[in-house]
Design a protein around this nucleic acid. Structure first.
Length: 639
RNA sequence: GCCCUUGUAGCUCAGCUGGUAGAGCAAUUGAUUUGUAAUCAAUAGGUCCGCGGUUCGAGUCCGUGCGGGGGCACCA
């Protein structure tokens, strides 16, 4: 006599054991039609699972996240089934649900081609049309392992072997000929998957994510509960492609890459101007926040890296150089050791603390070739780095002011949606526990002060101290990890940093590492994608183009152009023999924020006509008024 | 680094089963003097990523190296 309690609190009573479909039918016909699986006392179950005792039940439909997930999972299974029908010697491994879809990893000698994907896709459609039924069975471990070994599925057998003895082993049959080991739950039949799916790509993936293992072939698919959602998703992908910084960087003439130096940027005039504008902006902000800017050598003797610990820990990622006198130097992968050496020069007193030293330091890291990606992952980049030397008692205050500075800067650059990630002490670490207590406490206080959301990554901190990472969300909802704030209880001691305290004794300072954007190169990539190339006026490397309507107005256009320059607005005049439409199209594609049109009307009234990027409207303004207004707008937004 | 894929003019791309390269845009020159997203014409432009091989003959086929792209792994 199970009593079923529904999410709205209503109670249904049944004579005997009852399954999900019957419960749904009892509630409404339409719910029964939509029902995919159910949640019984917090656990997801197949719809035909039989409930024998009083339970809380929630019927799940495609509208719930769990519903969409089970559809995607179903699609993964049907894909594996289709693959094994088409390519019989293929072994199956795992096939989980991921954001926006699913994948399944296969072991097969011959590579899957993009034509194969089309074949697999249409076979999936056929299976869905056949509406094959799902049947769940619980198997004995030994039987399961023997069975999968027997049919040549050694990966499945290995998976079963690694499942804890206490767990039930369930096998799902889809139709009469295909089955897979799976935790479930599953849809009752294949037609419920629907047709809003698409196989998107094949790639390699290591078995169990370990690069020492063999490589499998992963087929990715996207899957939704309606065609409309699928189309929206594919549209989003297209939109993201349009704002790809590698494409825009070329179109806007900002930078390029070439074979001679993979992963290093060749900055063109415009890109470099953007780069420099960002730096000048940050200089002002950091000056106001009490930082001193320093600069340290790019090449430092091996012995320093040995002392700092980098040689041991990160040597594989460091570029080195042997000089003719056979000394070994390393090109810096980080700025901290150099900065500590600046601190070490001369005697420091407690009165000097906190001492904040910033450095726009160019670092080189030998990143694996496969990880390089435009400006977003490079081998040579400029960090907007700083190191703050302070006492233990100053940690809290310094963390708060770093956090404030970072958030102010993000806001000025158009990022207001920020998430924080906090990582505390790892198992393997240096330093006394009481100092860790203090550091963690300081960081948490700083986070709370921001009022922002934060995730805690337990045990993910660096071996030398806890850290906060600043993640910003861009205009199309993607997250980018940028800034970082780390408390370091290790390096100052290793490199012999000290200050003279009030009592006259030398003490080791605490060091905070902090970066605002992390890498300026990477941040510019993010900036381009966030703005789709439409960089805010003040940052734009070329802010305006003056366009004469015809040759007769070239002189006036030249005059306007030189006035703009006098007022600090970067500008060029376009005297090419093309008509107005052509020039507007040309400069709009190059994302110039402001076009100034000059013709007879403008000459007669000493005005300019303004056309702003992204708008077809135009307005006329007296030249002087324009200069006044836009010379202010062309400056960094510092209050 | 690993798997798949890809490399032709400044850019975007054609070039079928091997017979020494094409288009559009850009550039240059000329005509046109244009009022808000491509005026017309002519000219010039290429070690077909590098190296080796097969072949009478290689952009095309094979091997290898180096880049790019999508993933995996990595990201101090």
């Amino acid at each position: 006599m199970p009593n079923i309690i529904l999410p709205d609190g209503n109670k249904l009573s049944f004579e005997k054991k009852i399954d999900g479909l019957k419960i749904a039918e009892k509630i409404s016909h339409s719910l029964a039609k939509q029902a995919l699986i159910m949640e019984v006392n917090g656990e997801l179950k197949d719809l035909n699972y039989e409930i024998r005792k009083d339970s809380k039940v929630r019927i799940i439909t495609p509208k719930n996240k769990e519903g969409l997930d089970v559809i995607r999972h179903g699609a993964a299974h049907i894909m594996a089934m289709a693959v094994q029908q088409l390519f019989p010697k293929t072994q199956v491994t795992i096939g989980p649900v991921i954001e926006n879809g699913f994948y399944y990893d296969f072991a097969r000698k011959e590579p899957f081609t993009s034509d194969d994907l089309i074949k697999i896709e249409s076979r999936m459609s056929e299976i869905i049309d056949q509406d094959v039924k799902t049947k769940r069975e619980v198997w004995d471990r030994v039987k399961a392992i023997d069975h999968f070994n027997e049919i040549g599925e050694k990966y499945k057998a290995e998976i079963i072997d690694s499942i804890p003895e206490t767990e039930e082993l369930s096998i799902y049959h889809h139709g009469d000929t295909w089955h897979d080991l799976c935790r479930g739950p599953h849809l009752s039949s294949s037609s419920k998957i629907g047709k809003a799916f698409k196989l998107t790509k094949v790639s390699g993936a290591y078995w169990r994510g370990n690069s020492n293992n063999e490589m499998l072939q992963r087929i990715y698919g996207t899957c939704w509960s309606s065609k409309k959602e699928l189309d929206e998703y594919l549209n989003r992908l297209e939109e993201a492609e349009k704002r790809d910084h590698r494409k825009l960087g070329k179109e806007m003439d900002l930078f390029h890459f070439r074979e001679e130096s993979p992963g290093s940027v060749f900055w063109h005039q415009k890109g470099w101007s953007l780069f420099q504008k960002l730096i000048s902006y940050m200089r002002i902000k950091q000056d106001n926040a009490g930082y001193y800017e320093i600069n340290t050598p790019e090449i430092l003797d091996r012995s320093l890296w040995e002392k700092s610990g980098h040689w041991d820990k990160f040597g594989d990622n460091m570029y080195t150089s042997t000089t003719p006198d056979e000394k070994v130097f390393a090109i810096k992968p980080m700025n901290c050791p150099g900065c500590v050496q600046v601190f070490n020069q001369g005697l420091k007193s407690y009165r000097d603390l906190p001492l904040k030293m910033s450095e726009f330091g160019k670092v080189h890291r030998y990143e694996p070739s496969g990880s390089l990606h435009g400006l977003l992952r490079v081998r040579a980049f400029t960090q907007d780095d700083a190191h703050i030397f302070c006492t233990e008692d100053q940690i809290t205050q310094e963390c708060i002011s770093v956090t404030n500075l970072i958030l102010e800067i993000y806001k000025d650059l158009g990022f207001e949606n920020i998430i924080l990630k906090y990582s505390d002490r790892p198992k393997v670490r240096v330093g006394e526990d009481y100092v860790w207590d203090k550091s963690e406490d300081a960081l948490i206080k700083a986070i709370k002060k921001t009022g922002l959301k934060y995730d805690i990554n337990k045990g993910e901190g660096a071996f030398y101290g806890p850290k906060i990472e600043f993640v910003l969300r861009d205009a199309i909802g993607r997250d980018w990890q940028c800034g970082t704030l780390q408390v370091d209880l290790n390096l100052p001691g290793r490199l012999g940093a000290s200050y003279v305290d009030k009592d006259g004794f030398k003490k080791v300072p605490v060091m905070l590492h902090r970066a605002l954007f992390g890498s300026l190169e990477r941040f510019i990539g993010i900036l381009i994608e966030n703005y789709s190339g439409k960089i805010p006026f003040w940052l734009s490397p070329l802010q305006s183009i003056v366009i004469p309507i015809s040759e007769d107005f070239d002189d006036y256009a030249k005059k306007v152009n030189s006035e703009l320059k006098k007022f600090g607005i970067t500008s060029e005049v376009d005297l090419k023999n093309h008509n107005l439409n052509y020039k507007i199209r040309d400069h709009s594609l190059k994302k110039i924020p402001i076009l100034l049109i000059c013709g007879k009307k403008e000459v007669d009234s000493n005005t300019v006509t303004i056309r702003k990027l992204g708008s077809t409207k135009h307005e006329s303004m007296e030249l002087n008024k324009f200069l006044q207004k836009y010379s202010i707008l062309s400056k960094p937004p510092i209050n």
